[in-house]
Amino acid sequence: MRFDNKSVIVTGAGSGIGRAAAIAFAREGARVVCADITDAVEQTAATIGDAARAIRMDAGNEDDVIRTVALAVEAHGGLDVMFANAGISGGMANLFDTDVALITEVLRVNLIGPFLAIKHAAPEIAKRGRGAIVLTASVAGIRSGAGSPAYSASKAGVINLAQVSAQQLSGSNVRVNAICPGLTETGMTKPVFDNARDAGKIDRVGRLNPLRRGAQPEELAEAALFLASDAASYVNGQALAVDGGLSSSHPVTRQEYGLTAA
């Protein structure tokens, strides 16, 4: 029971990695605030039972983040772990088809969201004497080839935010790390997996990584729980790739967008 009687917040808990993580934290003794912008978060909390509270919130809205942290403190007496997992894909538009409104929204949710989570969770975690913040980044934030320009830039920012935050929280005993998922079967990627199954080509999903498969949310949840636990007590400011080995190479098929050298 790595999280016995610990107070944990999981954002993006309505589905995918967030839902798997919320259930896993509770299974190991945590009292969990399940946060999500959709009403699916109520189902996650109901699955967990009395150890969970649900809250509808927008991870990129500061007032909502403040409310979520306050709920954890009020309901569970404090805060030990923040898993800032909520995010959006923003589609697969290339550099020239990405407008300012799209990239602004992706950055608001995917990067400002984790920033707000750290800003408001860290002081409460520090009051407990020690604790952890885990952010969901992506292999797309490590190098090119795993996401759109907007998504990739936002996740690269999350990796750097984990590093900077770990330094600025020096002496607080609040650790900040990120997980970098590869292709994982979540609500965000459901069309990819469903289309592959319908076409009888599910074996081709994730074939660019050495394990030659996509991940399940529970596999990413386990990585998040490790970084949040005392087993990772000396791990700080790191980005852990959980991608079947994809980021060891990032093989891609290159596309050109009409620009050629003079």
Rank of each mutant, 00 (worst) to 15 (best):
N5G: 02
S15P: 00
G16R: 11
G16S: 11
G18Q: 14
A20D: 12
F25W: 11
V33A: 07
D39V: 14
A40C: 00
E42S: 12
Q43E: 15
I48T: 11
I55S: 10
I66Q: 10
V73P: 00
G78R: 06
I88N: 06
G90N: 08
G91C: 04
D97P: 01
D97W: 03
V100I: 13
A101G: 06
N110K: 09
G113L: 08
G113I: 09
P114R: 08
H120R: 14
A121G: 09
A126N: 02
A132S: 15
L135P: 01
T136V: 03
I142Q: 14
A150Y: 04
A156C: 04
G157N: 04
V158C: 02
I159C: 04
I159N: 05
L161H: 04
A166Y: 07
G171C: 02
S172H: 05
S172T: 15
S172K: 11
N177Q: 10
A178K: 00
C180S: 08
G182M: 08
E185M: 00
T189E: 08
K190W: 09
D194Q: 07
N195E: 14
A196L: 05
K201D: 10
K201G: 07
D203Y: 02
R207H: 10
L208T: 15
L208E: 15
N209H: 04
R212Q: 15
R213D: 05
E218T: 10
E219L: 07
D230I: 12
A231Q: 15
Y234K: 06
A241I: 10
D243H: 06
S248D: 03
P251I: 07
P251K: 09
L259Q: 12
